[in-house]
């Protein structure tokens, strides 16, 4: 849990002898209730993470046909779910920003886009690994894979747009429009790719019902990854807030 602790302490805590026990605790878990909440979230996420890794690797039952590679499934599906959640948040925050013009929605959209892009990358990698074991090929132009790839391109473009515009109101509005249009584009993409592929043999998916222990592992994994996502989102949001605050203050000092 070293990482979770580090995130909350504003100053690096050198174990100075003069530091009292209470101060040391404060620098470790955070001084304000908000910082302590983040620390707690980090701790819970870390514990859940370890349990999930154990469950995926040891406890969960393995598909008879697919064998060990089926364990990717418990990892891949939650990550894909988090990806969708992230871009839904980008969409909602973008709409809210254009409606309310509150900077905080803009930070939220930007944070969710950044974390979502990371998770989309993981989705693509794990999906590709799974495809290698099931279909015997790293990549196939299956509708879900193709749509996820296009989604990845859209949101990498979103992050590029943000880095090119800087923290201006017009940049925020432009990014919000891209966040909305990009999200609306996803189902259309899926639809068109499905029809495009309709002439080719359909890809077979694992459609059999899951046994209870497998469903339990999947559910717990979903929960854990949602926790991890919220932790990352909170940190990315704070980063946006602090960076914007510093930039504004610098502008005041110079101007």
């Amino acid at each position: 849990m070293q990482v979770a602790r580090e995130t909350t302490g504003g100053v690096a805590p050198p174990a100075a002898a003069s530091q009292t026990g209470a101060r040391r605790v404060r620098t470790l878990i955070g001084a304000t209730p908000g910082e302590r909440a983040v620390t707690a979230l980090g701790l819970v996420t870390g514990v859940c993470m370890l349990v999930t890794i154990w469950a995926i690797l040891v406890a969960a039952p393995v598909d008879v046909v697919q064998g060990m590679p089926f364990r990717i499934f418990y990892f891949h599906v939650p990550v894909a779910w988090v990806t969708f959640l992230a871009f839904f948040i980008v969409f909602v925050a973008s709409v809210a920003y254009l409606w309310r013009r509150d900077e905080r929605w803009d930070w939220m959209a930007r944070a969710a886009a950044e974390v979502g892009t990371i998770f989309t990358t993981v989705t693509l990698i794990t999906g590709s690994l799974w495809g290698r074991t099931i279909w015997g090929t790293w990549w196939t132009w299956d509708p879900r894979l193709t749509t996820t790839l296009i989604l990845w391109f859209i949101y990498v473009g979103y992050l590029m747009l943000r880095s090119y515009t800087g923290r201006t109101a017009s940049g925020a509005r432009t990014a919000a429009v891209l966040g909305i249009v990009g999200f609306v584009d996803v189902p259309i993409d899926y639809l068109s790719v499905t029809w495009w592929r309709s002439l080719h043999p359909p890809t077979t998916y694992v459609q059999s019902g899951l046994p209870a222990s497998a469903a339990g592992t999947l559910m717990f994994s979903l929960f854990t990854f949602t926790l991890l996502f919220s932790l990352l989102l909170v940190l990315a949001y704070q980063l946006q807030r602090v960076q914007t605050g510093a930039e504004k203050l610098r502008g005041q000092a110079e101007g």
Binding site: V3, T7, L232, L235, L239, L249
Partner: peptide, 20 residues
């Protein structure tokens, strides 16, 4: 990524403190 995020956050906080 988590570590990088934490590092950037710490850097930004330090910058904010310096600027203020």
């Amino acid at each position: 990524y988590l570590g990088w995020l934490a590092l950037r956050l710490r850097g930004a906080r330090a910058e904010l403190a310096a600027v203020s």
